[in-house]
């Protein structure tokens, strides 16, 4: 059994990382968008591997479903004239490298600290504990979250609205 788990994990890792790199480096923007969706999918898979099926379901619904579509809408409404590949990247890319490399090192070190940890993934599903928490201890934040969504919706509409004379 576990060998399947490990193999599955390896597969998902390659998918995630590869797609992520693809998002940043892709030639066409639609490619980036779809690769992003693929990343989301792989991450959902990892959630399943961890035993958090409910979260995985939400991931698919929200990220792969809603957010990807949103991004694609955004892509659709902002066409750019074609340009050479080099101009895809900001002028500050070298400075960016300077800052990002240390972060990379850091995260590598942090990750390295956990190499001997025991297996992840607890027993049982996560639906019951999740539901108990959300509708129990975290009921209020849950309601606030819905207000937040409402506000975001209204805000987005206001921002994009054209002034009609």
């Amino acid at each position: 059994m576990d060998i399947f788990g490990a193999a599955f994990f390896a597969l998902l890792t390659i998918g995630t990382i590869g797609a992520g790199v693809g998002v940043v480096l892709a030639n066409r923007i639609t490619t980036s968008a779809l690769l992003m969706a693929f990343t989301f999918l792989n991450v959902a898979g990892m959630f399943v591997l961890l035993g958090a099926e409910t979260v995985a379901m939400f991931q698919v619904l929200i990220y792969v479903g809603a957010i990807t579509v949103l991004i694609l809408y955004g892509v659709m409404f902002t066409p750019q004239s074609p340009r050479p590949y080099g101009l895809f990247f900001q002028t500050q890319k070298y400075w960016a490298a300077l800052f990002v490399v240390p972060i990379a090192i850091f995260v590598a070190v942090v990750a390295f600290e956990f190499r001997d940890s025991a297996a992840a993934g607890g027993s049982g599903g996560d639906l019951v504990p999740l539901a108990t928490s959300i509708f129990g201890d975290f009921a209020f934040p849950f309601e606030v979250a819905s207000v937040l969504l409402l506000a975001a919706m209204v805000g987005a509409i206001v921002l994009v609205k054209r002034d009609e004379e």
Binding site: D2, I3, G5, A6, F9, T13, T16, I17, G20, V21, V23, V24, T39, V43, M46, L49, L50, V100, I103, A104, V107, A108, V110, A111, F112, E113, F114, R115, D116, S117, A118, A119, A120, G121
Partner: peptide
């Protein structure tokens, strides 16, 4: 064998960096 926690953290870290 089960997947160690560190692996997930590593993946998370790399994705964050990307």
């Amino acid at each position: 064998m089960a997947v160690p926690l560190g692996a997930f953290i590593a993946v998370s870290a790399v994705l964050f960096f990307i």
